[in-house]
Each structure stands twice: as C-alpha cells, then as structure tokens.
C-alpha cells in the first residue's frame, strides 16, 4: 500500500498489519513471495527480530527488502542481542535504508532459543529503547552527542492483555506511552472479554491499539500455547472448535476463527486495528481478510 503507516494510523481507518519472519539462512524466496502477496493487502509488515531467540536474517535487511518491493515495513527491535550502541546504530541504518516504523520490544530470553550459551544483552529495556528512538529523533544519541542528521520514526510497542499481573503490565504500558510510543501491538488474544477489559484501561490514552491475532492451525497448537506461552490463553470453546474440525480442515477452521474475531474487533470498535500473525503461513492472510470482510 502506498500510504505511510503513520498516516494510516492518523486517518482513523481500521489498521491491518501482518508479520514477516526472516528466514534462517539466505534463501529469501518464500519470504519474497509472502511480501508480494501481502504488500497491497496490509498497512504494514512487521519484521521479527531473531524471533524466539532463534538466530536469523536481520530484521533491518528484511525491512529494506520490503521497501524495495514497495511494501511498508515495521522494524521490530528487541533489546536481547544488542547494547545501546548497536541498537542506535541499527536505528540510524534502518532509517537511511528507508524504514520509517519501529516496534520496540524487550525480546525473549536467550535461553528460549537456539544459542542458549550466548551472552544476552538487555542493556536497555523496551521503555529505554523507545526513549532512544525519541532521542535520535531529537537529533542526539542517548549519550547526549549531537547527530549529523536525525531520524523520524513512527514508534510502537507491545502490550500483553492477558498477562499474569495486569497491574504491573499497566505500569509498563503507561511508561511506554509517556516515553513516546504511538501505537501498540498486543500479544495474541483469543478472549474478547479480556481484550475488552484491557481496552477499557488503554482507552484512557489516545494511542492506537492493534489486537494480536494468532492464527490457530490445530487444537494441539492451542493447547501448546496455553501450556507454554505466557500471556496467551486460548479459551476451551475455541480449542473444542478446533478439535471438532474435519480432518485436514483445521487450518481452515483456524482461519475462520481469526476472521470472526477480526470482524468482531472491527464491528464493535474494540481496537483500532489488528496485527495478524500466521507464523510461516502468511499466504493465508489475504483470505482471512476477505473472510472477515474488512
């Protein structure tokens, strides 16, 4: 889509973003295919940063590829792998490569990934990373040194509507807003009641919130999420619905559920948009969108 992401956010239009996972290796064929199908269907493509602490092609490089193909990339940056020097340097690099949106995250712990013995960094936390972007925008680095040419990013952050302790999550949410996050993308949510409760709090400020929609591919995946992924709860009805799908039709069922939820979020104006995650199956996103009618 030709519109810049920040203009879409400002327009009040229902925002749709999706995800692009850089490959592990240099074969970018499949990823290019996903970029091609998605670029005119979504307002932004979120590029994950060594997702799940698994070493991959860099998100800066992939964002650049997306701009080359005429898409609108959103650069994910985690604090796990780079110290404040490298993070700022990569932000400058992304900017000169044409990237205009950045999503600041803490990042998963190194021990969850494929380089368990690596030295993890976390020199900054997500709030401080947002502050770093803002500082670069103001023309200086966080060491207080002047830059010859600054940046201008649309800065986003993440929130977890179904976290363990919502009070402490709201604390961080407030800090992210105060520091300058303009939009939020939530962790995957399935329980609309909980999402609404979160939104009741979030609506106290005027930041844009995109609900995370993670496409289920099987009942097993739903159970796995419940058991292993913090802050994600798939209600039993949805697990049953997935389990009841005809053989070979589970993905179809997952897409239906996603489409239904997107429609509900839009119709009931629960959030300002959605962020669709279809880990590795990005080709189904356009169909989900047409099923949802948005």
């Amino acid at each position: 889509m030709s519109k810049q992401f920040k203009d879409v956010l400002a327009s009040g239009e229902f925002v749709i973003t999706s995800e692009i996972g850089p490959p592990k290796g240099t074969n970018i064929e499949k990823m290019l295919h996903h970029i091609e199908i998605l670029k005119d269907k979504v307002h932004g493509m979120n590029v994950t940063d060594n997702q799940s602490s698994v070493m991959r092609l860099s998100s800066v490089a992939v964002c650049h590829i997306i701009t080359d193909h005429g898409g609108e990339p959103i650069l994910q940056m985690t604090c796990r792998d780079r110290n404040r020097m490298a993070l700022q340097s990569d932000l400058l690099s992304a900017y000169v490569l044409g990237v205009r949106n950045v999503l600041c995250l803490t990042g998963d712990h190194i021990s969850l990934g494929d380089h368990k013995g690596a030295k993890q960094v976390f020199d900054l936390d997500s709030v401080q990373l947002i502050a770093a972007v803002k500082s670069l925008e103001a023309g200086q680095d966080i060491g207080g040194n002047k830059l010859d040419g600054g940046v201008e990013f649309c800065v986003g952050a993440t929130a977890t509507p179904e976290a363990d302790n919502m009070d402490s999550q709201f604390l961080k949410f407030r800090k992210k807003i105060k520091t300058g996050a303009g939009f939020f993308q939530t962790q995957a949510v399935y329980d609309m009641v909980k999402l609404k409760a979160f939104m009741e709090y979030a609506r106290q400020s005027d930041v844009k919130i995109l609900a995370g929609i993670l496409v289920l591919v099987s009942a097993g995946m739903a159970r796995y999420l419940n058991a292993n992924v913090a802050g994600v709860t798939v209600p039993q009805e949805l697990i049953d619905e997935m389990a009841g799908a005809e053989k070979g039709k589970a993905l179809q069922k997952g897409m239906e559920i996603a489409a239904r939820q997107i429609k509900q979020i839009k119709d009931e104006k629960i959030c300002d948009g959605v962020h669709i995650m279809a880990i590795g199956k990005e080709e189904v996103v356009p169909e989900i969108l047409s099923m949802s009618g948005v």
Binding site: T106, H109, D125, V127, Q128, D164, S168, Q169, A230
Partner: peptide, 20 residues
Amino acid sequence: CSKGLLNGPCGGSQNGKCEV
C-alpha cells in the same frame, strides 16, 4: 529479573514465575 529490566516486567511471567 532474568533480563535485568529496570522499568517493569516483560510480558513473560506465568503464575508468578519467570519465562526462563
């Protein structure tokens, strides 16, 4: 905190336990 965070928790805790 396994990530040494200064401004509040990550979203990874579950039942009061760290994601690690």
